[in-house]
Design a protein around this nucleic acid. Structure first.
Lengths: 227, 227
DNA sequence: ACGAGTGAATTGTTGAACAATCCTGCCACG
DNA sequence: CGTGGCAGGATTGTTCAACAATTCACTCGT
């Protein structure tokens, strides 16, 4: 399913790139990037007037964009009060990890006859993380780490799992930005990533799933320790 | 976690009932109900003008409601062409069942120390289905069946899994409406439901997960057989 | 039968207007 | 000192009207 049988499937998969036109979606893209980069810290209030003026779009269009991001849970909307950058509570983080366990470990354990390209994606993410670590660019290590987990979930071969995972990791980023030292957080996971990747490559999915479970337990604890 | 420790948590959980105010959301509620009842068959085009006139809301508000439903995947939005009731393709259904397997089976297998109330919810759904079947109200059997699976996923104790599941089942309803004979479709599953529920009640989660896996395989095949 | 072109219909987006609601600061009162 | 109204301003919710951009259906000529 990674290598489409017909050229039509290939083009169909490119369709979203075409109608990338709606202003509201482009506005949402811009805001999403800012949100994920951490430029808009959680709790920030986004006034319709100011944001509209800054982006030179009408209030109505802006509201459409807000709706999109609210539905992605990057913003929260309080009636008659406005939209705010979401602040994740402790229970939110716990919940995120709970569903991650379900999706990631489930995808890994249920894996069988995964196309080579998917396994390669996992390995590539690991290498990218190690390379970035060698260059001490910890921000890149973070994104590589996310790509690693995205690739693990992608073993399920389900577009919907992919999207859920993408959204989920985006939310987690909101929590990560609250963490002062990126390095100490991400580095210890590099070795684990490689271990899991090799288990996957060897087809030992059950073992990989177990390791991943441990991984998530540790990561969750560490994230929660930061309050 | 079912019985909140503090009364504040209890009230917090009631908060969504309060700000039930936005017109756009109420419009979305109305449309959603129609969609799920099957009154608006897949492929139907919803013109902004007509829908707006029918519901007596402005075009802008209606568009906000549309955005919501598009994000829930009940409607699809084609740029400059309008919104349509989604028609599920075969690959969509396959994908839905793939993620159902992950969530439901994962929730069941990973279950441990689930509060009694959650197990009771599962049993209640089973009984409701059997009662409805005895009265030959097949529509009710269908909704009871959905509630059963919702209750299974709820064993994970994750609000987010609950919501994903809700949305997922809503989508599947779009496919169900295409099926002519509700009775033949749902009835054979009643026995399976009871079997799974009893395994869950006895704490034999692994066995329950296996049965559920079979269940989903059969159901998927049958749904796909209808084209 | 086929392609180009024209015009009506629909959506995309904006701006302005008004109602409803929230927030702030002020003041009186116990 | 704390509490409880009570304006007033600011922001959001919603509607309306207008215009630009695009699609669709139809006609026409070849």
């Amino acid at each position: 399913m990674d290598t489409p049988d017909t050229w039509e499937e290939l083009l169909t998969s490119d369709r979203p790139l075409l109608d990338r036109a709606s202003t509201a979606e482009r506005v949402a893209d811009v805001l999403r990037r800012r949100l994920l980069e951490g430029d808009l810290p959680p709790g920030t209030r986004l006034s319709e007037e100011n944001a509209g003026r800054a982006l030179a779009v009408s209030r109505n269009t802006l509201r459409e964009a807000f709706r999109l991001l609210v539905h992605e849970r990057l913003l929260v909307h309080e009636f008659h009060r406005g939209v705010f950058v979401r602040v994740l509570s402790v229970t939110d983080v716990v919940d995120l990890y709970r569903i991650r366990r379900l999706l990631e470990c489930g995808a890994v354990r249920a894996a069988q006859q995964v196309p080579r390209s998917r396994v390669e994606a996992v390995e590539r993410a690991v290498e990218e993380g190690e390379r970035s670590a060698a260059q001490h660019s910890w921000r890149e290590v973070g994104t590589a780490n996310m790509r690693f987990h995205q690739a693990l979930a992608a073993l399920a071969g389900s577009p919907r799992v992919d999207e859920t995972m993408r959204q989920l990791l985006a939310e987690l980023r909101l929590a990560f930005h609250a963490m002062p030292r990126m390095r100490e957080f991400h580095q210890p996971y590099l070795a684990r990533n490689r271990e899991i990747a090799e288990l996957v490559a060897r087809g030992e999915y059950a073992a990989a799933g177990d390791r991943l479970d441990e991984y998530l337990d540790v990561a969750e604890q560490q994230l929660l320790a930061e309050h």
